[in-house]
């Protein structure tokens, strides 16, 4: 093979490799979430999360992680703490009650274009014989306050192997030490840290909002499914 041909071939291979490195294309944002582009919600009212996990504290902790990623993506996010307090003052203490209110109430009271509902599906550590996994799993959806339609929904799950793969064994004693170390290292802060990672995964599928430079220009962005 001549030198030039070799160069051409390697250029082609390199380009192919790099393209595939950016992610295999399956569906565009425009095709996945057309209603986001139709209705163009500017503001998101983030409600306190619905907690379906076994950890009673998950709700309050997760609540502190939701605003930032959605705001950074260009949406106006209503202040979570204040909104949650105001709802309580209006007599809505129960998240379930809140999630069953007619959507137009949120438009009427807050002037919100859309509501962000989040459900904590998993927030736990599962202990197994040789390993333990921390799992944070979140489902979220954006619902229009005008039409009550679901405009976007996605779930984000993060599973972390807490044993860190250090198989320096040592029989039963080694196992015991490992379990103790695991229990100590899964403080609540760890959950919050991985909840943020789960949020980043969720948000990466959402069309960007009005304060983002690419607003209404990311229909062709490809999502991996």
């Amino acid at each position: 093979m001549r030198f030039q041909n070799l160069t051409a071939l390697s250029a082609l291979l390199l380009t192919l490799f790099l393209f595939s490195g950016c992610g295999p294309a399956t569906i565009s944002k425009g095709a996945a979430y057309p209603k986001m582009y139709d209705q163009k919600p500017r503001s998101l009212l983030i409600l306190p999360p619905m907690n379906e996990s076994t950890d009673a504290e998950a709700k309050e902790y997760y609540m502190t992680t939701v605003e930032m990623p959605f705001a950074q993506l260009g949406y106006y996010t209503f202040p979570v703490e204040m909104v949650s307090d105001v709802m309580k003052q209006e007599g809505v203490y129960d998240t379930e009650l809140l999630y069953n209110l007619p959507m137009n109430k949120f438009q009427e009271y807050f002037g919100a274009d859309a509501v962000l509902f989040t459900e904590i599906k998993k927030w736990n550590v599962s202990y197994m014989v040789l390993a333990s996994n921390l799992t944070v799993s979140i489902e979220s959806k954006i619902v229009s306050t005008k039409t009550s339609e679901v405009l976007w929904q996605h779930s984000g799950t993060v599973v972390v192997d807490l044993s860190g793969g250090n198989n320096n064994g040592g029989g039963i004693a080694g196992l015991l030490i490992q379990v103790v170390a695991t229990a100590v290292s899964t403080a609540a802060a760890d959950y919050v840290k991985y909840a943020r990672v789960a949020n980043m995964r969720l948000v990466s599928t959402l069309p960007v909002g009005p304060y983002h430079a690419l607003y209404l220009q990311d229909q062709d962005a490809q999502l991996t499914q």
């Binding site: 309050e60 705001a71 260009g74």
Partner: peptide, 18 residues
Amino acid sequence: KPLYNYEDYSDSYYHYKK
């Protein structure tokens, strides 16, 4: 750079709740 600067908003809010 991110769209906004929150400093340690999420952390301080978390400690406030905790």
